[in-house]
Amino acid sequence: MKQNFTVRQGALDGVEAFLSVAEHRSFRKAAAQLGVTPSAMSQAIRTLEARVGAALFIRTTRSVGLTEAGDRFLSRAKPAFEELVAASEVARDLGQRPAGLLRLAVPRAVVPIVLEPLIASFCADYPEVEVEIAASEEMVDLATAGFDAGVRMGQFIAADMVAVRLTPPFRFIIVGSPAYLARCGRPERPDDLRHHACLRLRRSNGAIALWSLNDSNRAIEIAVSGPLIANDFPTMLGAAVEGVGLAQVPAPIATGLVKAGKLVQVLEPFAPMGPGVFLYYPGHRQLMPKLRAFIDHVKARSNAGNKARTRRSPIVS
């Protein structure tokens, strides 16, 4: 059987014309309201009646009235059409100004460091936008899960996404507690890690991540072992603070603990550089104003941060 690949003529064709004629009881007045000719109005009604399969109006030279079918059609069509008009107005409103619910899928580790200050300033600037943060390590499909955008480290973002930088590139550092290092010693070379308790990360695809290092500008990966496997960096970091073992984590989330003396960085010369954290979103659709406003806010904050870092940097001649 041959399939029909054409779009069916809309079931709503002629409904607005019908409602206008039913309201005014006049084809001429209805035509004036909708800005069409009386003959075009009559044709729209005839087409609708043919599609419905029943006469909807009783026409005389002096008046227009509803048939029983027309009266029943009016009782159901009017509230439904009003709901459609209201739905269109709501959608149009969201398409014209930053408002509504902005849903972001983000990993837990970036929430306190990257997103909290950013979200605070964004909410202050755009009070009509509600921000929902779904903190998870899962690599979700934004469209299927109903998210407007996501936040991830650059190496995990698909090539068909548009990415906006949230942080500068940063190193992945290896840290351990003073107590652990006093008990087990300090590794001096990457091969020493094979004799240490190393906390490991299970990725959302089920694989356990290897530890990446940079040895004399050569990228290497090491399969380590240890007593704990976690699916997010904050859990690994907390275990490292408690002396369970060494952890390899993004430098920004460990900086405060290192400064406080709760963690010590080891194998500093071998720490690899990562691309940083990015906001990402599908690039094949028109951006809603709420997401466009958030992207512009991110860029403005990033530019301000870059200028501040430039002012603090010494001039090298």
Rank of each mutant, 00 (worst) to 15 (best):
A120V: 00
R301G: 13
A223G: 07
H297I: 01
F233C: 02
H284K: 09
G65L: 03
V64F: 04
G70N: 10
I45P: 06
R194Q: 09
H284R: 07
P187S: 05
F156V: 14
F73M: 13
V64D: 02
P117R: 02
V111L: 12
L279P: 10
R108P: 12
E130M: 12
V106D: 02
A50R: 15
K290I: 15
A77I: 03
H297W: 06
L48Y: 00
R25Q: 14
A230E: 04
P252G: 02
R194E: 10
R46Y: 02
E137R: 08
R46A: 02
M153R: 13
L181D: 13
F233H: 14
P38Q: 07
A260G: 05
V162L: 14
F294Y: 13
A77E: 08
F233W: 04
V114G: 04
T67W: 03
S204E: 08
I113W: 12
L102H: 03
C184A: 15
D93C: 00
A158L: 09
F5R: 14
I58K: 02
D71C: 01
L118V: 05
I173D: 11
A135M: 10
V90W: 07
A219P: 07
E82V: 02
F233G: 00
P107Q: 08
L142A: 14
D191G: 09
P38T: 06
R62I: 01
E116G: 00
R292H: 11
V266F: 03
D71Q: 14
D141M: 11
D93R: 06
R312D: 12
E242N: 04
I222A: 08
R203W: 01
A120L: 00
V151G: 08
D191E: 15
S302L: 06
A143K: 14
E83M: 09
K2E: 15
V151C: 05
V224H: 06
N303Q: 13
P38S: 04
N217P: 03
E242V: 00
G274M: 12
T60E: 04
R62A: 04
M1C: 11
R202H: 05
D13Y: 10
V129S: 08
S42M: 02
A87W: 11
F18K: 10
A293D: 05
S39T: 10
I220Q: 03
G65K: 05
E188N: 13
A124Y: 05
Q286K: 13
F5N: 15
K262I: 00
R62W: 07
P127F: 09
G154S: 07
T144I: 14
L287G: 05
R46P: 00
E116P: 00
V111A: 02
V85H: 02
D141G: 12
A135N: 09
L237I: 10
A31N: 09
P112L: 03
A197N: 13
L66D: 09
E132Q: 10
H297D: 09
A304G: 11
L115Q: 09
S177P: 10
N306V: 04
R309P: 05
G154L: 09
H24V: 00
K29Q: 15
V7T: 15
F18T: 02
A308T: 05
I253P: 07
R301I: 01
P190L: 11
